[in-house]
Design a binder for these strands. Structure first.
Lengths: 166, 166
DNA sequence: TTAGATGCAAATGGTTTGCATGCGT
DNA sequence: ACGCATGCAAACCATTTGCATCTAA
């Protein structure tokens, strides 16, 4: 989970830490599909064939929640030659760059949300589907006070849903 | 993840569904360690040596967040002969019975919280530690409206923490 | 040219399962 | 005695890694 090596993730994490990478470019909500290359460059990543394709699949349709496997299948269906390992690498790099957000919801699969801004989720049990919750639909009135010496990184809320019994 | 078979989890899930199992017995916050057997019986589980030991380890100290592996180690250290598989089974059964609560936090390990009541968590990145957030320390002012046909099962909030940079 | 990217296949790590044996009730 | 419970080892599955081979810059 923690990219400690410098092998696969190249210098993206380091550069992001030094603030050399913009991450969220100028208020982009759903990155423009016609400029994945620019997005990649901004993220400090080389624009290779597979990354462009993956970026296109991810951001073309806006607000999506996908697992590595899902993206991999889409890529294969779209006749884009790519390996699962590369899908994982790309997803992680885009996450580090701040263009994707990882959502831990049920302990097994990991979801990546193309909406990297602060918001919460509905999770439909059984269907394993994730839905964004409109930001203004939930309000955390009193932010909890973290223990001494710690600071809040982010707050994730998951509202678990079930089909109504009727 | 989903116990669809009737093999290992015996009839606990079904009975719980039919309301035959009390689950949360009368306002028990941290179950009394001196009566694990009663707790098990109430949960519709046979009180075997290992379940009693695990129940004791889990509930004796109150509010804990443990993974199967952690509990397994504690059991081994306590000279209680038990297998990892049994630890998993027991944890799941206690969860179904409403005595434990599963907390999904980082996609890999699954945590089980001995506090099964509605509350939220701090998660310390790096240390992989979970902390309860005092119930009145957070207030979700506006509960999100679920999509048509769905109902809210529960709301989980995870406040991710990091050691302050100083 | 060359650092960085890709793809495979093998390795991991948490969790589950099949089945023979054990043990509450 | 009966039927659920246990233990083990193998099976699983999502994810990661090592390394040889490519390729964007």
């Amino acid at each position: 989970m923690t990219p400690s090596r410098t092998k696969v993730f190249t210098n993206v994490p380091e550069r992001a830490e030094r603030g050399e990478i913009s991450g969220q470019h100028a208020g982009l909500t759903g990155c423009p599909w016609h400029d994945v290359k620019a997005m990649l460059r901004d993220a400090g990543m080389r624009s290779t064939r597979q990354r462009i394709a993956l970026g296109w699949l991810l951001f073309a349709k806006g607000g999506r929640h996908m697992t590595a496997e899902m993206l991999y299948e889409e890529a294969i269906n779209a006749k884009v030659p790519v390996s699962l390992a590369t899908v994982y690498n790309t997803l992680h790099q885009l996450t580090v760059a701040g263009l994707l957000r990882q959502v831990a919801v049920d302990g097994s699969k990991t979801y990546f949300d193309t909406n990297a801004s602060q918001h919460h989720h509905f999770f439909v049990e059984g269907e394993n589907a994730l839905l964004d919750i409109a930001d203004d639909d939930v309000v955390v009135a009193k932010t909890p006070v973290p223990p001494e010496g710690y600071e809040i990184v982010r707050i994730d809320m998951v509202v678990r849903l079930r089909r109504k019994a009727r």
